[in-house]
Amino acid sequence: MLKISNLTASYGLSQVLFGVDLEIGAGEVVGLLGRNGMGKTSTIMSTMGLIQASGIIEFNGKPLHKLAAYKIPQAGIGLVPEGRHIFPNLTVKENLVATATNRRHADSPWNLARVLDLFPRLGERLGNYGNQLSGGEQQMLAIARALMTNPQLLILDEATEGLAPLIRLEIWRCLDELKKLGQSILVVDKNLSHLIKIADRHYVLEKGRVVWTGSSSELGSDTAVQRQYLGV
């Protein structure tokens, strides 16, 4: 579904990615791992056309790297960015319906009723403005908003960062449910124990390069990789 080859990226004169290769198949959940500042968000931003990058990025066999940034979500990629970036002056309902679409004409599309079934708490807060929500509720809203675009690929950058433990569990429950539904997902998170349970494969970044890739079972048993590249 998504194939990234020899991706390099820079912020001005500072190069941050050095030949990243990454693939995600239909229905796969893939983890993108590494310590802070190693290039995870830069890889996502490059994929979404939001920073200066070169290389080949293909989605369903079609080049994304030649598209304007606004056309990449239209191609079928939904982004839950680090920091959530919901609309603070819109209500929960307005946030959800503002960008809702079903360009792929899915038979059972994500709609308001369906995302509220996934996140019942949002149903209790439909009339509240975005800036009246807790951090966990804002993350639920960001995920639900992305789902309302009915993406083929859902990307989550720092899925549970800064959230209370119970809210984290709710987010992991959501991602597990999405996996069961066959949703393709690329997820960045530091909670390795939960990520290993739902992800099929992982890529580990170190200083803008992929230094390890393998399955969840391989990563779970490779304590050396965990210590070298993921430990604090």
Results as ranks from 00 to 15, higher is better:
82 E>M: 02
75 A>N: 02
187 V>I: 15
6 N>E: 07
95 N>C: 08
85 H>Q: 15
74 Q>Y: 10
192 L>R: 11
16 V>H: 03
21 D>H: 06
21 D>C: 04
138 Q>S: 11
74 Q>F: 13
16 V>N: 01
14 S>E: 09
135 G>D: 12
137 E>A: 04
139 Q>T: 01
184 S>T: 14
179 K>D: 08
98 A>D: 00
34 G>L: 12
156 L>W: 14
15 Q>G: 10
109 P>I: 03
138 Q>F: 06
103 R>H: 12
61 G>L: 12
139 Q>W: 02
152 Q>I: 01
174 C>Q: 02
59 F>V: 05
29 V>N: 02
39 G>M: 07
112 L>V: 14
199 A>C: 14
34 G>Y: 06
192 L>P: 04
131 N>Y: 13
19 G>N: 09
41 T>W: 04
220 G>V: 10
22 L>K: 00
110 W>G: 07
102 N>D: 15
69 A>H: 07
98 A>G: 03
61 G>D: 03
126 L>D: 14
187 V>D: 11
63 P>T: 05
64 L>C: 03
52 Q>I: 00
67 L>G: 08
111 N>D: 15
160 T>N: 11
101 T>S: 11
227 R>F: 00
151 P>H: 01
180 K>T: 14
133 L>W: 03
21 D>L: 03
227 R>T: 10
26 A>G: 04
1 M>D: 03
60 N>S: 04
191 N>M: 09
80 V>T: 13
208 G>A: 10
142 A>C: 13
85 H>Y: 14
119 F>V: 02
225 V>P: 00
157 D>I: 11
124 E>I: 00
95 N>E: 06
214 G>M: 11
198 I>C: 05
211 V>F: 06
47 T>F: 01
149 T>M: 10
156 L>G: 08
132 Q>S: 09
183 Q>E: 05
42 S>H: 02
122 L>P: 01
229 Y>W: 15
207 K>S: 14
108 S>I: 12
130 G>T: 12
187 V>Q: 08
180 K>V: 06
217 S>F: 06
186 L>A: 00
64 L>D: 06
54 S>N: 14
197 K>W: 08
31 G>H: 05
129 Y>M: 13
121 R>E: 09
225 V>H: 02
204 V>A: 05
193 S>T: 12
31 G>Q: 02
90 L>H: 06
208 G>C: 08
231 G>P: 00
70 Y>C: 09
20 V>G: 10
4 I>N: 03
73 P>E: 04
161 E>V: 09
229 Y>G: 06
207 K>V: 08
128 N>I: 00
113 A>T: 13
206 E>I: 00
16 V>R: 00
125 R>T: 11
10 S>G: 03
64 L>I: 09
78 G>D: 14
131 N>M: 13
82 E>I: 01
223 T>Y: 10
156 L>A: 13
117 D>S: 13
49 G>P: 15
40 K>S: 07
206 E>P: 00
62 K>Y: 09
137 E>Q: 10
219 L>G: 11
62 K>M: 06
32 L>I: 01
112 L>T: 09
75 A>H: 02
173 R>Y: 13
190 K>L: 07
